[in-house]
């Protein structure tokens, strides 16, 4: 059997020179515009201003920076948990047989996904800002006299990011639930399990790979999120990405920005590599 499989895989392959010719532009582009610059940025963090680990010592000893990193982890974790709680039922609804509900759910999940994060962050400002829709409505209704302070808080960042990242939680779970054979819940019911038991003992365990992939994706994306914290957050909700940008553009301390980038990169890439088996990015891009 193995012979046949390998033989089939070899048949009709392109020759090595042709293959290299076809892949060369792709590799060259990514190497020069992507990996080389990032490599250089990370390198400056240990070579400048002097070849030492000073930048990292600074990052890990200043309470301000430690607080930013801790806050980033907390917000990313909060986003993941809330996206999971909100996303699982929606994924379950989307994976159901039938026409109306699954279609409606899919539209409500995909339309925000295709809308840029910038536009969605802007919409949140319009909703919860001092003169935003919610405050105006409450004042018009006479329920409050002074506008509520909702924007530029951690809560605003959390809500905005959860909203933007929610589709990335729903889609992997949906994909896992959809690949669940419809016969399994039926078999469980036939064997006497009620709906709750069927869910807890059959559906939930089998959808865990999707849950795991969704959580990982949301957590990793949340760690490095820039736009939403920059627009919805205030000075008290500084996150890693915003700190990097501040160090680079305001303090003009590129080596230190490089050091923070290295830490962020280690976290996101490390998590992704460690759990790459569960993370099927192609499923998220090529959602059906």
């Amino acid at each position: 059997m193995t012979t046949t499989g390998r033989a089939t895989a070899f048949r009709g392959q392109l020759s090595l020179p042709l293959t290299l010719l076809l892949i060369a532009p792709l590799v060259a582009l990514l190497a020069w515009t992507f990996f080389l610059p990032i490599g250089r940025l990370l390198l400056t963090s240990v070579t400048e201003p002097t070849p030492s680990l000073d930048n990292y010592r600074r990052l890990l000893t200043e309470p301000l920076h430690l607080r930013v990193m801790l806050r980033t982890l907390l917000i990313a974790f909060g986003c993941t948990v809330s996206a999971l709680l909100l996303g699982y039922p929606v994924a379950a609804l989307m994976a159901r047989p039938g026409r109306f509900w699954p279609k409606l759910t899919a539209i409500c999940v995909l339309v925000p996904l295709w809308t840029s994060a910038l536009v969605r962050s802007y919409a949140w400002i319009a909703l919860i800002g001092r003169r935003g829709v919610i405050n105006t409505a409450l004042i018009d209704a006479g329920l409050i006299a002074q506008p509520l302070n909702m924007l530029y808080t951690s809560a605003a960042v959390l809500v905005g990011m959860t909203h933007i990242l929610l589709p990335f939680m729903v889609l992997p779970i949906f994909s896992a639930l959809l690949s669940l054979p419809a016969d399994l819940p039926r078999a469980a019911a036939n064997l006497g399990a009620g709906r709750v038991r069927t869910f807890l003992t059959i559906v939930l365990p089998l959808s865990l790979p999707g849950v795991f992939a969704g959580c990982l994706l949301v957590f990793v994306m949340a760690l490095g999120f820039y736009i939403t914290p920059a627009l919805l957050g205030g000075p008290r909700t500084l996150m890693i990405a915003t700190l990097i940008s501040q160090q680079a553009t305001e303090a003009l301390d590129w080596p230190f920005a490089g050091a923070i980038s290295t830490v962020l990169l280690l976290m996101s890439v490390g998590l992704t590599v460690a759990f790459r088996r569960v993370l099927r990015l192609d499923r998220v891009v090529a959602h059906d």
């Binding site: 059997m1 193995t2 012979t3 046949t4 033989a7 070899f10 048949r11 009709g12």
Partner: peptide, 17 residues
């Protein structure tokens, strides 16, 4: 039987191997 080499032989005749 499968894996006996018959298809590989055919593929060589066709020039794919």
């Amino acid at each position: 039987p499968s894996g006996s080499g018959k298809t590989t032989l055919l593929m060589m005749l066709a020039g794919f191997e």
